[in-house]
Design a protein around this nucleic acid. Structure first.
Lengths: 196, 196
DNA sequence: AACTATACGGAGACACCCTCCGGATCTACA
DNA sequence: TGTAGATCCGGAGGGTGTCTCCGTATAGTT
Protein backbone atom coordinates (compact mmCIF):
# COMPACT_ATOMS: atom_id res chain seq x y z
CA UNK A 1 0.00 0.00 0.00
CA UNK A 2 1.40 3.34 -1.01
CA UNK A 3 2.17 5.82 1.76
CA UNK A 4 -0.36 8.40 0.59
CA UNK A 5 -3.03 5.74 0.35
CA UNK A 6 -2.36 4.63 3.91
CA UNK A 7 -2.50 8.22 5.09
CA UNK A 8 -5.86 8.79 3.44
CA UNK A 9 -7.21 5.53 4.76
CA UNK A 10 -6.36 6.51 8.31
CA UNK A 11 -7.76 10.00 8.00
CA UNK A 12 -10.99 8.60 6.58
CA UNK A 13 -11.48 6.19 9.47
CA UNK A 14 -10.71 8.97 11.92
CA UNK A 15 -13.13 11.35 10.31
CA UNK A 16 -15.80 8.69 9.89
CA UNK A 17 -15.69 7.91 13.57
CA UNK A 18 -16.39 11.52 14.45
CA UNK A 19 -19.14 11.81 11.87
CA UNK A 20 -20.83 8.60 12.98
CA UNK A 21 -20.80 9.73 16.58
CA UNK A 22 -22.17 13.15 15.78
CA UNK A 23 -24.61 12.41 12.96
CA UNK A 24 -25.27 8.73 13.43
CA UNK A 25 -24.22 5.94 11.10
CA UNK A 26 -26.15 7.46 8.22
CA UNK A 27 -23.83 10.46 8.06
CA UNK A 28 -23.26 11.61 4.48
CA UNK A 29 -20.18 9.91 3.05
CA UNK A 30 -19.36 12.95 0.96
CA UNK A 31 -19.06 15.01 4.11
CA UNK A 32 -16.74 12.46 5.63
CA UNK A 33 -14.55 12.55 2.53
CA UNK A 34 -14.50 16.33 2.49
CA UNK A 35 -13.60 16.61 6.16
CA UNK A 36 -10.83 14.10 5.61
CA UNK A 37 -9.52 16.36 2.83
CA UNK A 38 -10.07 13.64 0.27
CA UNK A 39 -12.25 13.15 -2.80
CA UNK A 40 -15.35 11.01 -2.65
CA UNK A 41 -13.76 8.63 -5.13
CA UNK A 42 -10.95 7.93 -2.71
CA UNK A 43 -13.39 7.08 0.03
CA UNK A 44 -15.20 4.61 -2.19
CA UNK A 45 -11.96 3.00 -3.33
CA UNK A 46 -10.95 2.21 0.23
CA UNK A 47 -14.44 1.40 1.46
CA UNK A 48 -16.76 0.02 -1.20
CA UNK A 49 -19.78 0.84 0.90
CA UNK A 50 -20.92 2.37 4.15
CA UNK A 51 -20.62 -0.93 5.99
CA UNK A 52 -16.94 -1.32 5.18
CA UNK A 53 -16.26 2.04 6.70
CA UNK A 54 -18.41 1.30 9.69
CA UNK A 55 -16.61 -1.96 10.15
CA UNK A 56 -13.23 -0.24 10.12
CA UNK A 57 -14.36 2.27 12.72
CA UNK A 58 -16.02 -0.33 14.87
CA UNK A 59 -13.08 -2.67 14.72
CA UNK A 60 -10.78 -0.14 16.35
CA UNK A 61 -12.99 -0.14 19.41
CA UNK A 62 -13.63 -3.82 19.67
CA UNK A 63 -10.39 -4.57 21.46
CA UNK A 64 -11.82 -2.81 24.46
CA UNK A 65 -14.88 -5.04 24.60
CA UNK A 66 -12.74 -8.11 24.08
CA UNK A 67 -10.49 -6.96 26.90
CA UNK A 68 -13.50 -6.60 29.15
CA UNK A 69 -14.52 -10.16 28.47
CA UNK A 70 -11.07 -11.38 29.45
CA UNK A 71 -11.25 -9.45 32.69
CA UNK A 72 -14.67 -10.84 33.50
CA UNK A 73 -13.33 -14.30 32.83
CA UNK A 74 -10.37 -13.80 35.12
CA UNK A 75 -12.26 -12.18 37.96
CA UNK A 76 -14.21 -14.44 40.24
CA UNK A 77 -17.58 -13.06 39.19
CA UNK A 78 -20.59 -15.30 38.95
CA UNK A 79 -20.46 -16.87 35.46
CA UNK A 80 -24.02 -15.97 34.47
CA UNK A 81 -23.70 -12.43 35.75
CA UNK A 82 -20.48 -12.06 33.81
CA UNK A 83 -22.23 -12.93 30.55
CA UNK A 84 -25.04 -10.52 31.24
CA UNK A 85 -22.74 -7.73 32.33
CA UNK A 86 -20.68 -8.16 29.21
CA UNK A 87 -23.76 -8.00 26.99
CA UNK A 88 -24.67 -4.77 28.75
CA UNK A 89 -21.24 -3.39 27.90
CA UNK A 90 -21.76 -4.32 24.26
CA UNK A 91 -25.10 -2.55 24.40
CA UNK A 92 -23.63 0.55 26.00
CA UNK A 93 -20.93 0.71 23.37
CA UNK A 94 -23.28 0.41 20.45
CA UNK A 95 -25.36 3.19 21.91
CA UNK A 96 -22.56 5.64 21.20
CA UNK A 97 -23.25 5.31 17.48
CA UNK A 98 -26.85 5.95 16.60
CA UNK A 99 -27.74 3.35 14.01
CA UNK A 100 -24.88 0.98 14.70
CA UNK A 101 -27.20 -1.65 16.08
CA UNK A 102 -29.30 -1.44 12.94
CA UNK A 103 -26.21 -1.64 10.74
CA UNK A 104 -24.94 -4.72 12.49
CA UNK A 105 -28.28 -6.42 12.10
CA UNK A 106 -28.64 -5.40 8.51
CA UNK A 107 -28.42 -8.31 6.14
CA UNK A 108 -26.68 -6.27 3.47
CA UNK A 109 -23.85 -5.59 5.84
CA UNK A 110 -23.53 -9.19 6.79
CA UNK A 111 -20.44 -9.75 4.69
CA UNK A 112 -18.81 -6.41 5.36
CA UNK A 113 -19.09 -6.44 9.13
CA UNK A 114 -18.29 -10.09 9.62
CA UNK A 115 -14.86 -9.47 11.10
CA UNK A 116 -16.43 -7.43 13.87
CA UNK A 117 -19.11 -9.98 14.44
CA UNK A 118 -16.75 -12.89 14.78
CA UNK A 119 -14.60 -11.03 17.28
CA UNK A 120 -17.66 -10.38 19.39
CA UNK A 121 -18.77 -13.97 19.08
CA UNK A 122 -15.51 -15.41 20.19
CA UNK A 123 -15.20 -13.09 23.18
CA UNK A 124 -18.77 -13.64 24.31
CA UNK A 125 -18.69 -17.31 23.45
CA UNK A 126 -16.01 -18.01 25.99
CA UNK A 127 -17.96 -16.29 28.74
CA UNK A 128 -21.12 -18.11 27.78
CA UNK A 129 -19.40 -21.45 27.63
CA UNK A 130 -18.13 -21.07 31.17
CA UNK A 131 -21.58 -20.14 32.44
CA UNK A 132 -23.15 -23.10 30.72
CA UNK A 133 -20.52 -25.46 32.11
CA UNK A 134 -21.41 -24.17 35.57
CA UNK A 135 -25.08 -24.84 34.85
CA UNK A 136 -25.89 -21.18 35.32
CA UNK A 137 -27.28 -20.66 31.82
CA UNK A 138 -29.47 -22.93 29.76
CA UNK A 139 -27.34 -25.12 27.55
CA UNK A 140 -29.42 -24.46 24.43
CA UNK A 141 -28.56 -20.76 24.41
CA UNK A 142 -26.14 -19.71 21.66
CA UNK A 143 -23.82 -16.73 21.67
CA UNK A 144 -25.00 -15.66 18.24
CA UNK A 145 -28.54 -15.50 19.52
CA UNK A 146 -27.55 -13.49 22.55
CA UNK A 147 -25.74 -10.93 20.46
CA UNK A 148 -28.62 -10.66 18.04
CA UNK A 149 -30.99 -10.26 20.94
CA UNK A 150 -28.83 -7.59 22.50
CA UNK A 151 -28.60 -5.54 19.32
CA UNK A 152 -32.31 -5.92 18.70
CA UNK A 153 -33.03 -4.52 22.15
CA UNK A 154 -30.54 -1.70 21.70
CA UNK A 155 -32.34 -0.80 18.52
CA UNK A 156 -35.71 -0.85 20.25
CA UNK A 157 -34.37 1.36 23.01
CA UNK A 158 -32.74 3.72 20.54
CA UNK A 159 -36.02 4.23 18.74
CA UNK A 160 -37.84 4.96 21.98
CA UNK A 161 -35.72 7.61 23.64
CA UNK A 162 -38.71 8.77 25.64
CA UNK A 163 -38.51 5.57 27.66
CA UNK A 164 -35.13 5.56 29.36
CA UNK A 165 -35.43 2.24 31.17
CA UNK A 166 -36.64 0.28 28.17
CA UNK A 167 -33.45 -1.57 27.39
CA UNK A 168 -33.01 -2.76 30.94
CA UNK A 169 -36.61 -3.87 31.25
CA UNK A 170 -36.51 -5.87 28.04
CA UNK A 171 -33.11 -7.31 28.81
CA UNK A 172 -34.23 -8.41 32.22
CA UNK A 173 -37.04 -10.42 30.68
CA UNK A 174 -34.64 -12.25 28.45
CA UNK A 175 -32.08 -12.62 31.15
CA UNK A 176 -34.52 -14.41 33.40
CA UNK A 177 -35.35 -16.73 30.57
CA UNK A 178 -31.73 -17.67 30.12
CA UNK A 179 -31.43 -19.20 33.52
CA UNK A 180 -32.34 -22.85 33.91
CA UNK A 181 -35.73 -23.23 35.45
CA UNK A 182 -36.05 -25.03 38.75
CA UNK A 183 -37.88 -28.33 38.49
CA UNK A 184 -41.49 -27.53 37.69
CA UNK A 185 -43.29 -26.03 40.64
CA UNK A 186 -46.99 -26.86 40.57
CA UNK A 187 -49.20 -23.99 39.48
CA UNK A 188 -46.62 -21.39 38.60
CA UNK A 189 -45.38 -23.03 35.45
CA UNK A 190 -48.79 -24.07 34.20
CA UNK A 191 -48.96 -23.92 30.44
CA UNK A 192 -45.23 -23.66 29.99
CA UNK A 193 -44.94 -26.57 27.62
CA UNK A 194 -47.26 -24.90 25.13
CA UNK A 195 -44.94 -21.94 24.88
CA UNK A 196 -41.75 -23.84 24.21
CA UNK B 1 -64.34 14.37 0.63
CA UNK B 2 -64.92 14.56 -3.07
CA UNK B 3 -65.74 11.31 -4.83
CA UNK B 4 -62.62 11.36 -7.03
CA UNK B 5 -60.44 12.03 -4.02
CA UNK B 6 -61.93 9.07 -2.20
CA UNK B 7 -61.40 6.91 -5.25
CA UNK B 8 -57.75 7.87 -5.48
CA UNK B 9 -57.24 7.39 -1.79
CA UNK B 10 -58.56 3.85 -1.98
CA UNK B 11 -56.54 2.96 -5.03
CA UNK B 12 -53.40 4.28 -3.39
CA UNK B 13 -53.88 2.19 -0.28
CA UNK B 14 -54.62 -0.83 -2.42
CA UNK B 15 -51.57 -0.33 -4.56
CA UNK B 16 -49.35 0.50 -1.60
CA UNK B 17 -50.30 -2.75 0.07
CA UNK B 18 -49.18 -4.71 -2.97
CA UNK B 19 -45.98 -2.74 -3.31
CA UNK B 20 -45.11 -3.08 0.36
CA UNK B 21 -45.64 -6.82 0.19
CA UNK B 22 -43.56 -7.24 -2.94
CA UNK B 23 -40.80 -4.68 -2.43
CA UNK B 24 -40.89 -4.15 1.31
CA UNK B 25 -41.93 -1.00 3.10
CA UNK B 26 -39.25 1.02 1.34
CA UNK B 27 -40.95 0.64 -2.02
CA UNK B 28 -40.64 3.80 -4.12
CA UNK B 29 -43.63 6.05 -3.53
CA UNK B 30 -43.48 7.27 -7.11
CA UNK B 31 -44.02 3.72 -8.33
CA UNK B 32 -47.00 3.31 -6.06
CA UNK B 33 -48.52 6.51 -7.40
CA UNK B 34 -47.91 5.47 -10.98
CA UNK B 35 -49.42 2.03 -10.48
CA UNK B 36 -52.42 3.63 -8.85
CA UNK B 37 -52.80 5.77 -11.98
CA UNK B 38 -52.25 8.91 -9.98
CA UNK B 39 -49.65 11.68 -9.83
CA UNK B 40 -47.04 11.76 -7.11
CA UNK B 41 -48.54 15.01 -5.86
CA UNK B 42 -51.82 13.29 -5.18
CA UNK B 43 -50.11 10.63 -3.14
CA UNK B 44 -48.38 13.21 -1.00
CA UNK B 45 -51.56 15.18 -0.47
CA UNK B 46 -53.34 12.17 0.97
CA UNK B 47 -50.34 10.79 2.80
CA UNK B 48 -47.80 13.40 3.92
CA UNK B 49 -45.14 10.76 4.33
CA UNK B 50 -44.39 7.08 3.96
CA UNK B 51 -45.58 6.32 7.47
CA UNK B 52 -49.04 7.71 6.87
CA UNK B 53 -49.42 5.40 3.95
CA UNK B 54 -48.04 2.47 5.88
CA UNK B 55 -50.42 3.24 8.68
CA UNK B 56 -53.40 3.23 6.34
CA UNK B 57 -52.39 -0.12 4.89
CA UNK B 58 -51.64 -1.61 8.26
CA UNK B 59 -54.85 -0.37 9.79
CA UNK B 60 -56.96 -2.33 7.35
CA UNK B 61 -55.43 -5.52 8.64
CA UNK B 62 -55.46 -4.77 12.30
CA UNK B 63 -59.07 -5.77 12.81
CA UNK B 64 -58.00 -9.32 12.22
CA UNK B 65 -55.41 -9.23 15.00
CA UNK B 66 -57.87 -7.53 17.33
CA UNK B 67 -60.43 -10.19 16.51
CA UNK B 68 -57.92 -12.87 17.37
CA UNK B 69 -57.33 -11.36 20.77
CA UNK B 70 -61.06 -11.40 21.46
CA UNK B 71 -61.23 -15.05 20.52
CA UNK B 72 -58.30 -15.91 22.75
CA UNK B 73 -60.00 -14.06 25.55
CA UNK B 74 -63.26 -15.92 25.08
CA UNK B 75 -61.75 -19.35 24.66
CA UNK B 76 -60.68 -21.12 27.79
CA UNK B 77 -56.99 -21.07 26.89
CA UNK B 78 -54.38 -20.63 29.56
CA UNK B 79 -54.03 -16.86 30.11
CA UNK B 80 -50.25 -16.72 29.73
CA UNK B 81 -50.27 -18.92 26.65
CA UNK B 82 -52.93 -16.71 25.16
CA UNK B 83 -50.72 -13.64 25.48
CA UNK B 84 -47.77 -15.40 23.96
CA UNK B 85 -49.78 -16.90 21.14
CA UNK B 86 -51.20 -13.53 20.31
CA UNK B 87 -47.77 -11.93 20.23
CA UNK B 88 -46.73 -14.66 17.82
CA UNK B 89 -49.67 -13.75 15.60
CA UNK B 90 -48.59 -10.13 15.65
CA UNK B 91 -45.11 -11.26 14.68
CA UNK B 92 -46.36 -13.46 11.87
CA UNK B 93 -48.42 -10.63 10.47
CA UNK B 94 -45.61 -8.12 10.51
CA UNK B 95 -43.45 -10.62 8.70
CA UNK B 96 -45.60 -10.26 5.61
CA UNK B 97 -44.24 -6.74 5.11
CA UNK B 98 -40.48 -6.60 5.03
CA UNK B 99 -39.56 -3.52 7.02
CA UNK B 100 -42.84 -3.07 8.82
CA UNK B 101 -41.30 -3.95 12.15
CA UNK B 102 -38.61 -1.35 11.58
CA UNK B 103 -41.18 1.24 10.55
CA UNK B 104 -43.26 0.66 13.64
CA UNK B 105 -40.22 1.03 15.84
CA UNK B 106 -39.01 4.11 14.03
CA UNK B 107 -39.27 7.25 16.09
CA UNK B 108 -40.12 9.44 13.08
CA UNK B 109 -43.19 7.39 12.47
CA UNK B 110 -44.24 7.58 16.06
CA UNK B 111 -46.93 10.15 15.39
CA UNK B 112 -48.11 8.77 12.12
CA UNK B 113 -48.55 5.18 13.16
CA UNK B 114 -50.01 5.88 16.55
CA UNK B 115 -53.51 4.81 15.66
CA UNK B 116 -52.19 1.35 14.79
CA UNK B 117 -50.10 1.19 17.89
CA UNK B 118 -52.91 2.06 20.24
CA UNK B 119 -55.19 -0.53 18.70
CA UNK B 120 -52.53 -3.16 19.27
CA UNK B 121 -51.97 -1.99 22.79
CA UNK B 122 -55.57 -2.14 23.78
CA UNK B 123 -56.09 -5.59 22.30
CA UNK B 124 -52.94 -7.01 23.84
CA UNK B 125 -53.41 -5.11 27.06
CA UNK B 126 -56.63 -6.93 27.83
CA UNK B 127 -55.01 -10.31 27.32
CA UNK B 128 -52.04 -9.34 29.44
CA UNK B 129 -54.21 -7.97 32.22
CA UNK B 130 -56.07 -11.25 32.49
CA UNK B 131 -52.84 -13.22 32.66
CA UNK B 132 -51.45 -10.98 35.34
CA UNK B 133 -54.64 -11.21 37.38
CA UNK B 134 -54.27 -14.97 37.23
CA UNK B 135 -50.69 -14.65 38.45
CA UNK B 136 -49.42 -16.29 35.27
CA UNK B 137 -47.29 -13.35 34.15
CA UNK B 138 -45.11 -11.05 36.22
CA UNK B 139 -47.07 -8.02 37.26
CA UNK B 140 -44.33 -5.57 36.26
CA UNK B 141 -44.57 -6.49 32.59
CA UNK B 142 -46.21 -3.83 30.39
CA UNK B 143 -47.99 -4.36 27.11
CA UNK B 144 -45.99 -1.60 25.45
CA UNK B 145 -42.79 -3.38 26.35
CA UNK B 146 -44.06 -6.69 25.04
CA UNK B 147 -45.00 -5.20 21.71
CA UNK B 148 -41.68 -3.42 21.40
CA UNK B 149 -39.90 -6.61 22.27
CA UNK B 150 -41.91 -8.55 19.72
CA UNK B 151 -41.18 -6.10 16.93
CA UNK B 152 -37.51 -5.97 17.87
CA UNK B 153 -37.30 -9.73 17.59
CA UNK B 154 -39.19 -9.74 14.31
CA UNK B 155 -36.66 -7.28 13.00
CA UNK B 156 -33.75 -9.41 14.16
CA UNK B 157 -35.28 -12.46 12.52
CA UNK B 158 -36.01 -10.55 9.32
CA UNK B 159 -32.39 -9.50 9.02
CA UNK B 160 -31.17 -13.06 9.52
CA UNK B 161 -33.18 -15.04 7.01
CA UNK B 162 -30.55 -17.76 7.02
CA UNK B 163 -31.63 -18.70 10.53
CA UNK B 164 -35.24 -19.79 10.31
CA UNK B 165 -35.79 -20.60 13.99
CA UNK B 166 -34.30 -17.37 15.31
CA UNK B 167 -37.50 -15.61 16.22
CA UNK B 168 -38.82 -18.56 18.17
CA UNK B 169 -35.58 -19.06 20.02
CA UNK B 170 -35.33 -15.43 21.06
CA UNK B 171 -38.99 -15.25 21.93
CA UNK B 172 -38.76 -18.31 24.09
CA UNK B 173 -36.03 -16.69 26.15
CA UNK B 174 -38.17 -13.67 26.82
CA UNK B 175 -41.26 -15.75 27.36
CA UNK B 176 -39.61 -17.70 30.11
CA UNK B 177 -38.58 -14.48 31.74
CA UNK B 178 -42.14 -13.25 31.79
CA UNK B 179 -43.34 -15.99 34.05
CA UNK B 180 -43.12 -15.45 37.77
CA UNK B 181 -40.22 -17.31 39.21
CA UNK B 182 -40.88 -19.97 41.82
CA UNK B 183 -39.60 -19.08 45.26
CA UNK B 184 -35.82 -19.12 45.07
CA UNK B 185 -34.42 -22.58 44.70
CA UNK B 186 -30.98 -22.85 46.23
CA UNK B 187 -28.15 -22.82 43.75
CA UNK B 188 -30.07 -22.34 40.54
CA UNK B 189 -30.92 -18.70 41.07
CA UNK B 190 -27.53 -17.73 42.37
CA UNK B 191 -26.62 -14.26 41.24
CA UNK B 192 -30.08 -13.37 40.13
CA UNK B 193 -30.33 -10.24 42.18
CA UNK B 194 -27.38 -8.72 40.40
CA UNK B 195 -29.17 -8.99 37.09
CA UNK B 196 -32.42 -7.36 38.13
C1' DA C 1 15.54 11.55 -14.38
C1' DA C 2 12.48 8.66 -16.38
C1' DC C 3 9.13 5.23 -15.98
C1' DT C 4 5.13 2.69 -14.30
C1' DA C 5 2.02 0.99 -11.11
C1' DT C 6 -0.88 3.00 -7.99
C1' DA C 7 -3.88 6.39 -6.21
C1' DC C 8 -6.52 10.69 -6.58
C1' DG C 9 -10.51 13.76 -7.56
C1' DG C 10 -14.81 15.27 -8.76
C1' DA C 11 -18.08 15.60 -12.54
C1' DG C 12 -22.05 13.33 -13.58
C1' DA C 13 -25.62 9.59 -13.91
C1' DC C 14 -28.95 7.70 -11.05
C1' DA C 15 -32.58 7.10 -7.57
C1' DC C 16 -35.61 8.80 -4.44
C1' DC C 17 -37.94 12.43 -1.71
C1' DC C 18 -40.96 16.17 -1.40
C1' DT C 19 -43.05 20.87 -2.88
C1' DC C 20 -45.58 23.94 -5.52
C1' DC C 21 -49.03 25.94 -8.35
C1' DG C 22 -51.47 26.34 -12.95
C1' DG C 23 -55.00 23.87 -14.71
C1' DA C 24 -58.65 20.26 -14.59
C1' DT C 25 -62.62 18.37 -12.26
C1' DC C 26 -66.30 17.76 -9.27
C1' DT C 27 -70.56 19.34 -6.80
C1' DA C 28 -73.90 22.35 -4.94
C1' DC C 29 -77.09 25.43 -5.98
C1' DA C 30 -79.99 28.18 -8.85
C1' DT D 1 -79.23 22.01 -16.88
C1' DG D 2 -75.75 25.46 -16.44
C1' DT D 3 -72.43 27.67 -13.86
C1' DA D 4 -69.50 29.31 -10.00
C1' DG D 5 -65.99 28.17 -7.17
C1' DA D 6 -64.24 24.96 -3.91
C1' DT D 7 -61.60 21.04 -4.28
C1' DC D 8 -58.37 18.13 -6.28
C1' DC D 9 -54.91 16.66 -9.78
C1' DG D 10 -50.38 16.22 -11.98
C1' DG D 11 -45.72 16.27 -12.82
C1' DA D 12 -41.90 19.43 -13.46
C1' DG D 13 -38.29 20.74 -10.65
C1' DG D 14 -35.13 21.39 -6.75
C1' DG D 15 -32.87 18.98 -3.15
C1' DT D 16 -30.06 15.18 -1.06
C1' DG D 17 -27.31 11.30 -1.14
C1' DT D 18 -25.08 7.15 -3.49
C1' DC D 19 -21.81 5.30 -6.46
C1' DT D 20 -18.95 5.03 -10.99
C1' DC D 21 -15.66 6.26 -14.24
C1' DC D 22 -11.60 7.89 -16.22
C1' DG D 23 -8.22 11.63 -17.14
C1' DT D 24 -4.67 13.35 -14.20
C1' DA D 25 -1.24 13.30 -10.52
C1' DT D 26 2.15 11.13 -7.68
C1' DA D 27 4.97 7.66 -5.06
C1' DG D 28 8.40 4.48 -5.54
C1' DT D 29 11.80 2.08 -8.36
C1' DT D 30 15.72 1.58 -11.40
Amino acid sequence: MRADAQRNYDRLVEEAQQAFIVHGTSAALEDIARHAGVGIGTLYRHFPDRYSLLNAVFERELDDLVQRSVELLAAGTDPATAVIDWLRMVAVHSTSYRGLAAAIMEGDGYQRMQSCKSKLRSAGGTLLWRAQEAGAIRSDVQIGDLLKLTYALVLAAEKNPEEPGLFDRLMSLAVDGMRPRAAATAGVSAGRTAAD
